[in-house]
Write a protein that binds this DNA or RNA. Structure first.
Length: 546
RNA sequence: GGCCCCGUGGUCAAGCGGUUAAGACAUCGCCCUUUCACGGCGGAGACAUGGGUUCGAUUCCCGUCGGGGUCACCA
């Protein structure tokens, strides 16, 4: 009896691996084209880190005319969650990060290297596991959980490394006949790699992002096929990324420690290993320490958070690019209008340790991004957002879109566009007073600034509207009239004039216009008063000064 | 604990043996024909630490301290 019989007994149905090697040939791409992927497990929630990885991966693929695909890693059936696949795909699509190849929502595959769902690849993994058993490079292991615990306890007692390796193994050197007999008797088993590694030897690995890393060879006989017949992550990674012809693995850096194992797996399977780019995760400060953005503790870890807050996707992408390649920011400064595609992204410029997530910075980026939008774009975005998250706002801006457009157009589209909205959920606050019914509803006290005397206020307002106001004035005329009004009532025409001689005036033109501003908007701080008055129109203004 | 990685202002970060140690966000002040939002100018603010190597270390080496990752039939 030999390995062949053992292998046939364990996987009688498995095809010869040559079948798969032919079925998934080398990809016909130009020199240097990167084939990479995003490989999430379907846990029903898209993490900002996944978006980050996908952004980097898709960017690299695009830049080299390569391929970006998504493979769903669902080999842990216990963690399976309903609709998780469409959740992931929708999130990617929302940020223009849809893959070239993937599992479709209806379960079919898009692309020639599928299935893109691991649970559908069981036969493939088993074929390769079988080939390993045939060569004596993998073996069935019958150790129970209790046995494994016992081994670990002994190791801890002896202050040795824990794990299933070398002299601590029980099934590694089991005679083939005995293994066959146990299997025939129906004993439970899993398949382990028969690791050829020697921990006294070092292997050198050059990571695309982290640079040179040296670690001991792997000597753990890791399990490659679980008792449910599905592969572990490690084995699936080697088989899939070989067959899908991935040449650059971009993944979170929690995987670096597995590199020796993975390289060994590729070697044992006779595959050419891919290059690796291990990305540092996005971190969060927590009590003086750093930790990864957590699904449970940090709302901003979920991609859905940005949609709910109304932070535009363009802003999220720009911010993520800032973190990924810090030179992106200065490139953007000099290329405000250019599409992202024109920025040359470089993996080796990525940071090696995790950056703290900075919401303030994100909102600053977002504010700038929004300032480049036209009034129409802003209106449409706010319409879309409010439709789902703020029905009052939606109703308000939807009933007279032409007017809403004018409101969002205030100080927009000029060289120094307004930057007061950093997320759509801010929009309501910044425009609501422009709507007459909302203006009437609010009964807050006017927050007058310098001039608070009721009679003086009435005098300013009445004089202005009776003697100076004309809705048809151009900006300069309007401005001069404010000055004339100031002078007439004993205020300085210019602020400087007042500052030079504060005792000579009751105040200055700024104080006068503040009174008008507050009267008209019930705000001390607003965009340009002239533009506001133009948009409001005569009827609305008359109503407001009563 | 073993193994691996990292350590420049509050945050993100340039820097690769000789620099007045960039820049962005945040912060403070001034200016910008009236507020606010911008924009401009300026201020404050950093090489974790101790040893080496060197004519010279933020930069190279070692130790210490600090941070992160990983040691599953989870990915």
């Amino acid at each position: 009896m030999g390995y062949k019989e053992l292998a046939d007994l364990i996987f009688p149905e498995a095809k010869d691996i040559s079948y798969y090697e032919e079925k998934y040939p080398e990809r016909d791409l130009k020199e240097g084209a990167i084939v990479t992927r995003f490989a999430p497990s379907p846990t029903g929630f898209t993490h900002i880190g996944g978006l980050y990885q996908s952004l980097v991966a898709k960017k690299m693929a695009r830049q080299t005319e390569g391929v970006f695909f998504v493979r769903i890693e669902d080999t842990d059936q216990k963690r399976e969650i309903e609709n998780a696949v469409s959740e992931i795909l929708n999130s990617l699509a929302e940020y223009d990060l849809s893959p070239d190849e993937t599992l479709n929502e209806d379960g079919t595959d898009k692309g020639n290297y599928g299935p893109y769902l691991q649970s559908k690849r069981k036969d493939i993994y088993q074929a390769y596991a079988k080939s390993l058993i045939e060569k004596g490079l993998a073996y069935p292991c019958f150790c129970s959980q209790e046995t494994l615990n016992e081994i670990r306890e002994n190791q801890e007692k002896a202050k040795q490394r824990t794990g299933y390796y070398g002299k601590w193994t029980r099934c590694r050197n089991m005679p083939i006949d005995m293994a066959i007999e146990k299997i025939k008797n129906g004993e439970d088993y899993i398949i382990r790699l028969k690791s050829p590694g020697n921990p006294d030897k070092k292997i050198k690995h050059k990571d695309v992002i982290k640079g040179n890393i040296e670690f001991p060879e792997n000597d753990q006989d890791v399990v490659i096929i679980k008792s449910d017949g599905l592969p572990t992550y490690h084995f699936a990674h080697a088989v899939d990324d070989h067959l899908m012809r991935t040449n650059l693995v971009i993944r979170a850096d929690e995987w670096v420690a597995s590199v020796p194992l993975h390289l060994q797996l590729f070697s044992v399977l006779g595959f050419k290993p891919p290059r690796y780019a291990h990305i540092a995760p996005i971190m969060k400060e927590d009590g003086g320490n750093k930790r990864k953005l957590s699904k449970r503790k940090d709302p901003e870890a979920a991609v859905s958070y940005y949609r709910e807050e109304g932070i535009p996707k363009e802003a999220v992408i720009e911010y993520l690019m800032n973190i990924a390649n810090s030179n992106f920011e200065s490139w953007r400064k000099g290329n405000k209008e250019k599409p992202l595609d024109e920025f040359k992204f470089e993996l080796n410029k990525m940071g090696v340790s995790g950056a703290l997530f900075d919401m303030v910075k994100l909102l600053d980026v977002s504010k700038t991004v929004i300032s480049t939008f036209t009034a129409e774009e802003v209106l449409n975005y706010v319409l879309d957002w409010s439709k789902v998250y703020d029905s009052e706002l939606y109703e308000l801006i939807n009933r007279d879109k032409e007017y809403s457009l004018k409101v969002f157009g205030i100080e927009r589209g000029n060289v120094k566009p307004r930057k007061d909205i950093s997320k759509w959920s801010d929009a309501k606050q910044s425009i609501i007073y422009m709507f007459d019914d909302k203006f009437k509803e609010s009964n807050e006290e006017y927050e007058y600034q310098k001039i608070t005397d009721k009679e003086e206020i009435d005098k300013i307002v009445n004089t202005y509207f009776n003697e100076y106001f004309d809705i048809n004035d151009d900006k300069e005329t309007w401005f001069n009239k404010m000055k004339d009004l100031s002078e007439k009532l004993g205020y300085a025409r210019e602020v400087k004039e007042y500052k030079a001689n504060p005792d000579g005036f009751k105040g200055h033109v700024g104080d006068i216009s503040t009174v008008i501003r507050v009267k008209l908007t019930r705000r001390a701080n607003t965009p340009d008063l002239y533009e506001i008055m133009k948009v409001l129109g005569e009827d609305s203004i008359k109503m407001r000064i009563k």
